[in-house]
């Protein structure tokens, strides 16, 4: 089956991100197609390339990036939810006159239309939130 995940919980604040990641890994291990993870609400913080958790804790941001590289999962971040929370890629940082940027590939800033599109095209859209 073709799956997509909607993640709305911030990493480390709630279980949602950990659960979503484990579900994602289980899907690909079972041979399903995980087309994309869409990050919305506080879930956009999963895309912060500046996250520096203690070394003896799982690194969620890196884990999403690994999942994307190994299994071709697209990582889509709602741009409106991201910008107001300080998550900007190089292009948006330049556009808003910010010195640094906090979102990099394989995460991509995109619109809510992509979420609706995933919900329409995939067999299942599974939501994780606090």
């Amino acid at each position: 089956m073709r799956y997509a995940i909607l993640l709305m919980g911030a990493p480390y604040s709630h279980q949602a991100s950990h659960s979503a990641l484990r579900f994602a890994r289980a899907l690909v291990a079972r041979g399903h197609c995980l087309e994309a993870v869409f990050f919305y609400h506080d879930g956009v913080h999963n895309a912060s390339r500046l996250a520096a958790p203690p070394q003896d804790e799982p690194h969620l941001v890196d884990a999403w990036a690994d999942l994307s590289r190994e299994h071709g999962v697209s990582l889509q971040v709602c741009i409106a939810a991201a910008l107001r929370r300080g998550l900007l890629d190089e292009r948006e940082a330049a556009r808003h006159g910010k010195e640094g940027n906090s979102v990099a590939a394989p995460f991509e800033l995109t619109g809510l239309g992509q979420l609706i599109d995933l919900g329409t095209r995939c067999d299942r859209l599974v939501t994780f939130g606090p």
Binding site: Y40, H41, A80, A81, G111, L112, G113, L115, I116, D117, T120
Partner: peptide
């Protein structure tokens, strides 16, 4: 919280896409 606002935003975008 922003839950209501962000939920309504998703509904409006879906409607704008013809859903």
């Amino acid at each position: 919280s922003s839950w209501l606002k962000e939920g309504l935003d998703a509904a409006l975008v879906a409607a704008a896409f013809g859903q």
